[in-house]
């Protein structure tokens, strides 16, 4: 592995079973270290989204443990809301709050959860909007934005909480092709600035270029993982070879 940072998230033998028979996750263990950009790929139904969503407990594992910054967040005693503040999440369908202005989307959580004053939160919000070049949209509403702009705002909304890790659940899958680039650019910038990221994606170019580690999932298990060069150029697992031959 390319980085030797501290372990940020530790996943220990996680299973997720729906309705007592559908095994979405079938014994997944992994460690995500500070500064890593982990890219998860795999066919649909492989459990990659379930895995990502279990990292911040949007999906609660049936068995197994997940530790975030040393705390077992799967424990019933853990206040998961506190830990989620440190784990940003970006969704396929953006999920911006349509009843709030762009700026309010960004400042809501810092004000209500971190106790920031309105001025403070708005100052930071405008800084972040400048970062993505959308400061003139501050007082508009999400419905006035293009898909790519929406996703950039969704990323910025998460960043406003100063998270320690960002989780991306197929962030470009719902975008028109010409808008994929602007979102990937922003993600690249984040990675470059040292943000720890876990990304479920179909963008193989991004995985190769930005990923520090790639994970291939199939049938609810991690079938292969490694540095991008190895992973893409010399895959050992036949299912990964087959998958890559179809998507590359």
């Amino acid at each position: 592995m390319t980085t030797n940072g501290d372990v940020l998230i530790k996943v220990d033998d996680v299973h997720k079973v729906y309705n007592k028979k559908l095994h979405a996750l079938n014994g997944v263990s992994n460690e995500i270290r500070k500064g890593e950009v982990v890219v998860i790929i795999g066919p649909s139904g492989s459990g990659k989204s379930t895995f990502l969503r279990s990292l911040n407990l949007l999906e609660v594992p049936t068995t197994g443990h997940i530790y975030f910054e040393g705390t077992d967040i799967t424990s019933k005693k853990t206040d998961i809301d506190k830990h989620r503040q440190k784990m940003g999440m970006v969704f396929q369908h953006f999920n911006l709050f349509p009843h709030k202005t762009i700026l309010d989307n960004i400042t809501l959580a810092p004000m209500k959860l971190l106790g920031k004053s309105k001025e403070e939160a708005q100052k930071r919000g405008m800084e972040l909007l400048r970062l993505v070049g959308l400061e003139e949209k501050a007082n508009g509403y999400p419905s006035q934005l293009s898909g790519g702009q929406k996703q950039r705002i969704a990323i910025v909304r998460s960043l406003a909480m100063d998270p320690d890790v960002m989780l991306f659940d197929e962030p470009t899958s719902a975008l028109d092709p010409e808008m994929v680039g602007e979102v990937l650019e922003l993600m690249k910038k984040l990675a470059h600035d040292g943000m720890t990221m876990v990304v479920v994606t179909h963008e193989m170019g991004f995985a190769k270029e930005v990923g520090t580690r790639c994970i291939f999932m199939d049938e609810g298990q991690i079938k292969e993982e490694g540095a991008p060069e190895e992973f893409f150029d010399h895959p050992t697992e036949p299912r990964l070879q087959d998958f890559l031959s179809k998507v590359l």
């Binding site: 911040n56 949007l58 809301d81 506190k82 989620r84 503040q85 784990m87 940003g88 999440m89 969704f91 369908h93 999920n95 911006l96 709050f97 809501l108 959580a109 209500k112 959860l113 969704a154 909304r157 998460s158 909480m161």
Partner: peptide
């Protein structure tokens, strides 16, 4: 939409 709920929870709202 359920996504609104998830977005809220993932930001740390209870």
């Amino acid at each position: 939409d359920q996504g609104q709920f998830e977005a809220g929870r993932s930001l740390g709202f209870n």
